[in-house]
Nucleic acid binder design. Structure first.
Length: 273
DNA sequence: ATCAGCCCCTGCTAGC
DNA sequence: TGCTAGCAGGGGCTGA
């Protein structure tokens, strides 16, 4: 389940491999994986174009191609973009193969939620999903004050608020649980009930877990791997995610697992208030 | 405007 | 052993 740190790790590993390479051919093995244009038009359009840059916005990857074209890629839960040497046999769930002037990139997604969208570069930020996105937590526009301002009108649970990509871009289930644990805030707390001090703690915790996640090349809980097929290391640092029923690393109390906003949520009822 | 709940998918696991 | 039901989850959509 790639969140901001995993998508950033994929971006960096892809940049090392495929920047400035030319797309010589594209093989669409499952048409549902591509959006924007019908399969043949999609393929004909991108054939021959160089990949000029790869940027990230929230959990989206933005590939800038030549001649004003772009890919918008989202991994959703089980999506992977992996670089291989030329002629690598696609896996069962490899839906798109980008054959490049050197090597190839396989877009593989077991649960078929991920998408590769072809858009005009000048249109890409106007796509509803991207246009609505909240601020990047690790960039200048975000601060404890901005977080407080955005939480103020919201009555939903703070955990649900953190998962809302329009409030804040890039945080998913793993890093939301971890940030709330570090901030000592119970996930069911109403978003607008946080004190100034708690909001500051939460802001710091969000930045910390994301930065540490990036430094560890992401969290490999089940499917995640980067463009080189490497797994991340942040799962070793997890305090709560996936640890329901186990002992809190801080106080020893049994970690509680509940369902919140349709997501499994783990927290320490003693450390988080 | 806000928010809960459903839906998309497949693989894994628990239970019979 | 072999089956099925339930669960996992990001984000778009719907309806309240």
């Amino acid at each position: 389940m790639p969140e901001l740190p995993e998508v950033e790790t994929i971006r960096r590993s892809l940049c090392q491999r495929i920047l400035n390479l030319r797309i010589e051919d594209i093989l669409i093995r499952w048409p549902g994986a591509v959006e924007g244009y019908e399969g043949k038009t999609f393929a004909d359009t991108v054939k021959g174009l160089r990949i000029q840059s790869i940027e990230r916005r929230g959990k989206y990857l933005l590939f800038t191609l030549e001649e004003g074209w772009s890919f918008i890629a989202h991994m959703r839960m089980t999506g992977r973009l992996v670089y291989h040497a030329q002629g690598q046999e696609p896996e069962k769930h490899t839906h798109v193969v980008l054959k490049l002037s050197s090597g190839e990139v396989h877009f593989t997604d077991t649960r078929k939620f991920g998408r590769l969208q072809l858009v005009r570069t000048e249109e890409r930020l106007k796509q509803p999903s991207l246009a609505r996105l909240g601020p990047e937590p690790l960039e200048g526009g975000f601060s404890a004050e901005e977080l407080a301002r955005r939480l103020a009108p919201r009555k939903l649970a703070i955990k649900a608020a953190l998962l809302d990509q329009n409030l804040l871009a890039g945080v998913g289930n793993i890093y939301a649980d971890e940030a709330l644990f570090r901030a000592g805030i119970a996930p069911e707390r109403c978003a607008n009930s946080l004190t100034k001090e708690e909001t500051e703690k939460l802001y710091t915790a969000i930045c910390q877990v994301l930065e540490e996640g990036i430094a560890a090349n992401g969290t490999s809980f089940r499917d995640y791997q980067d463009a080189n097929g490497e797994k991340g290391d942040f799962q070793k640092e997890l305090n709560v995610y996936g640890r329901g029923g186990e002992a809190c690393k801080c106080c020893g109390h049994t970690l509680e697992r509940i369902r919140l906003a349709g997501r499994s949520t783990v927290f320490c009822p003693r450390c988080q208030r």
